[in-house]
Design a protein around this nucleic acid. Structure first.
Length: 797
DNA sequence: TAATTCGCTAGACCGA
DNA sequence: TCGGTCTAGCGAA
């Protein structure tokens, strides 16, 4: 038999745990395995004594006698040391948490909190979504024969979305009905119960009938992958609540059940029996966290425009009930509803290939990998590899230890202060995967630290003063090297395909997944909740990083280049009287001296660049770090850190700043840049600017009550709440500074509630500060902008 | 509960 | 009302 592995869990029959595997062949099917036993490890000084102590243990839990099933002495690498320990085999996974408390008294316990199904995957060497070839006996798995690559996984996908009647803004589950359910696969439709003159609309009798029809549709289409956006937190729970209200079932699962909610950290997920339900919102949040996505609100519309590159049809959320009530609102509402489902489908087409790759790489089923955070991905991957390296998985730290780690952060990267100014002919280099390549090169791992086998001379000694083994490879360096090498191979292979081919895109996705993982390892090493945390290892990684970038800067200066700026792994240098070839030769010389897996790469050559000074209370000008704009030889502009890349600045200020930067970079014209600013100031003064260009976006990171300081976004949210628009923790406040009030907070008003704007605020606090720091480098003062601005209104400057 | 540190900047708040 | 300090958010790498 063959099939792509979709999911693994377990059931209990006659008190025995049985692993259940879901495979995808022509359709989903289930295979069982009753041969796998739950276990954990016990490490004690005297194994014989420990053995007899364990044998005596019987715990009475809810009337049942719980005992250890069996014990085996096994040789394992325990926290860097080879030794014999006891493998404690239990009758049922739920016995593990009960027994471990007693066994803890005998010695150290390990791998006691690894979910049973996960342990099965790693023990059997399974890879989700690849084709597993196996022998079976009836419905039971006998033997795994081989795992084949599965480049093309095709699941029957259906995207859906719901609309709800909301006369009070927030819909009430007990009173406000569902009015539309939209869906999209090869065909698209909207289920509703009002007559709407559109081909894609299917009009039914009432709310009950559209819910039933939707469930029938899922069943009839034999949906394998159900896609929603925020569906675990909104659509599905709402559907369930309405079904309950109407007294009808919600048979979305293959067994007729609805779904089960689970929360992991900040992520809520809904699991449907026999189908994969993926909430794209969770993936979007993940991409936001790792910085793979430009910052924005995590709405379907924003995600769609950012990732698919198209605009979604929108209606105002608060208007939905009115559109439903008014005859002429129905068509736009139906179109909007349909497009939500279509957008979710297109978004899934873009996002899922990456999740599929991650699932295969870290060997976690797709459902669990979607929305998993980086710490989790790295941990799963390491736990899997640990099994094959015969290494015990270190325990999760206790709360006390976590707090200790958190209170004592690791010193990070080096950033050079740039000299403010406008420069020409700049070469930018960076170290490819700096931290991963350092970890590999110096065998940095919590358990290669202070090894017994290397003398002071033999070991790698970090600039932070810690010793790492030079003889036996640690788990983390080993895993990282595999990932790094695979990524390099893929990148090489990509060159042999045209960019728009299927093969190229597949490789690009795979490469991207590897990059995400590679970049997550250092963070995991320094993450207080990590199983593989090591202050010494983390500190050594950054210390070597600082050393390499600073030494390279020194070398550059020695060779006669002026080093303009540098941050962590990047180096900006002026060519001066040298040419590109000199810079490339410099790079070659550096590379010749670097360890094998480390490499300095050319990022690009830039014809012009702008660095500005930091805003200080005093007059002295100090260069600002993490803020620059560059124009590449090919005409591409690269801007970092400036207000125009931040969401908490108004569009009018960002656009103006962008135009000023572009003008200076491309044309080098001060007058033209000034003219741009003066025009904008004029428009602001004359009330010619649209309100939407004045909106400032800020996320509320805590609940409203918890703020010590009432900042503008908090004030705006408070007012909004009073007006019946609740904004909870995590939502993005969109506000405008109006004329009404004294302080800026008092003037702040939710964009949809604002009636006017305060031109002075936008001129003095938004546009001027954003552009002045740039124009100052050309000798322009604030008065130059304001005075000429005034003049222009009088006599048309 | 769910990767890290470095860095800039705003606006509130507070005391002189 | 001024200037320093602190809270808070967001971006770079």
């Amino acid at each position: 038999m063959k099939g792509a592995l979709i999911d693994v869990d377990y059931i209990t029959k006659n008190e025995k745990p049985i692993i259940r595997l879901v495979f995808k062949g022509k359709r989903f099917y289930k295979i069982y395995d009753d041969s796998f036993e739950p276990y954990f490890y016990l490490d004690a000084d005297d194994l014989k004594e420990a053995r007899s102590a364990v044998e005596k243990i019987t715990i009475n839990a809810k009337g049942k006698q719980i005992k250890v099933k069996r014990m085996e002495a096994v040789k394992k690498n325990v926290l860097g040391e080879e030794r014999e320990i006891l493998k404690i085999i239990c009758n049922h996974p739920r016995d593990v948490p009960i027994l471990r408390e007693e066994l803890r008294k005998i010695g150290a316990i390990y791998e006691h909190n690894i979910p049973f199904a996960r342990a099965y995957i790693k023990n059997k060497g399974l890879v989700p979504l690849e084709i597993i070839e196996f022998e079976r006996e009836g419905r039971f798995l006998k033997k795994i024969i081989k795992i084949h690559e599965n480049p093309e996984l095709k699941l029957r996908m259906l995207a859906f979305d719901t609309e709800v009647y909301n006369p009070l803004g927030v819909p009430r589950q007990d009173k406000d009905p569902l009015i539309m359910i939209s869906y999209a696969d090869e065909e698209q439709g909207v289920l509703t119960y009002k007559k709407i003159g559109k081909k894609f609309v299917h009009t039914h009798k009432d709310e009950e009938e559209i819910i039933n029809t939707f469930c029938d549709l899922v069943k009839k289409k034999d949906v394998e992958l159900l896609i929603g956006y925020n569906s675990s937190q909104f659509d599905l729970p709402y559907l369930k609540a309405r079904a309950k209200q109407l007294g009808i079932p919600l048979p979305l699962g293959r067994d007729g059940s609805s779904f089960k909610l689970s929360t992991r950290g900040i992520v809520t997920r809904a699991k449907i029996v026999g189908r994969l339900h993926i909430d794209l919102y969770n993936i979007i949040v993940f991409l936001g966290i790792i910085g793979a996505l430009k910052s924005f609100r995590y709405t379907l519309g924003e995600a769609y425009s950012e990732i698919v590159g198209k605009e979604k049809k929108e209606v105002k959320k608060l208007e939905i009930w009115r559109l439903w009530d008014e005859e002429k609102g129905l068509e736009p509402l139906a179109e909007y509803s349909l497009h939500d489902a279509v957008a979710a489908k297109e978004l899934a087409d873009q996002l899922l290939p990456m999740e599929v790759e991650l699932s295969k790489l870290v060997k976690v089923p797709l459902f669990d990998v979607c929305g998993a955070m980086t710490g989790n991905l790295v941990e799963q991957l390491l736990m899997n590899k640990a099994h094959w390296e015969n290494v015990i998985v270190p325990n999760t730290p206790k709360e006390e230890e976590i707090n200790k780690r958190r209170a004592n952060p690791i010193v990070g990267a080096f950033v050079k202060v740039p000299e403010p100014g406008i420069y020409e002919n700049i070469a930018v280099f960076d170290f490819r995967s700096l931290y991963p390549s350092i970890i590999i090169s110096y065998n940095i791992d919590p358990f290669t630290l202070n090894c017994k086998c290397c003398s002071e001379k033999e070991a790698f000694v970090s600039p932070a003063g810690y010793k790492f083994c030079a003889k036996k490879k640690g788990l983390i360096p080993k895993v990282l090297e595999e990932l790094l090498v695979r990524r390099m191979e893929i990148k090489k292979k990509m060159k042999s395909y045209e960019q728009n081919t299927r093969e190229y895109k597949m490789l690009a996705t795979r490469q991207q997944a590897l990059k995400i993982l590679l970049n997550s390892f250092y963070g995991y090493l320094a993450y207080p909740r990590s199983r593989w945390y090591s202050r010494e290892a983390g500190e050594s990684t950054t210390a070597w990083g600082r050393q390499y970038i600073q030494e390279t800067m020194k070398e550059a200066e020695k060779e006669g280049f002026k080093v303009l700026y540098g941050d962590t792994d990047a180096l900006f240098m002026l060519l001066g009287d040298k040419v590109k070839k000199d810079a490339l030769e410099f790079m070659k010389r550096i590379n010749a001296k670097l360890p094998e897996k480390m490499e300095l790469e050319l990022e690009d050559f830039y014809t012009r660049g702008v660095f500005v000074s930091k805003k200080l209370s005093k007059e002295e000008a100090v260069g600002a770090k993490k803020k620059y704009a560059l124009l590449s030889e090919s005409g591409r502009i690269k801007i970092r850190g400036f207000e125009l890349v931040r969401r908490d600045w108004a569009k009018i200020a960002k656009d103006t700043q962008e135009k000023v930067l572009e003008t200076i970079l491309r044309e080098g014209s001060k007058d033209k840049a000034m003219k741009v600013v003066i025009d904008v100031i004029d428009n602001l003064k004359n009330n010619k600017v649209k309100l939407e260009d004045l909106v400032i976006y800020t996320r509320l990171k805590k609940s409203l009550k918890k703020y010590e300081l009432i900042s503008p976004e908090v004030a705006a949210a408070q007012k909004a709440k009073a007006a019946g628009i609740p904004l909870e923790e995590g939502s993005v406040v969109e506000y405008v500074i109006t004329k009404k009030g004294k302080s800026i907070s008092e003037k702040a008003e939710l964009a949809e509630l604002a009636k006017d704007y305060d031109p002075d605020y936008y001129i003095e606090h938004q546009v001027i500060p954003a552009v002045l720091k740039i124009l100052k480098e050309l000798g322009v003062s604030e008065d130059d902008l304001l005075f000429k601005g005034k003049q222009s209104t009088l006599n048309g400057w």
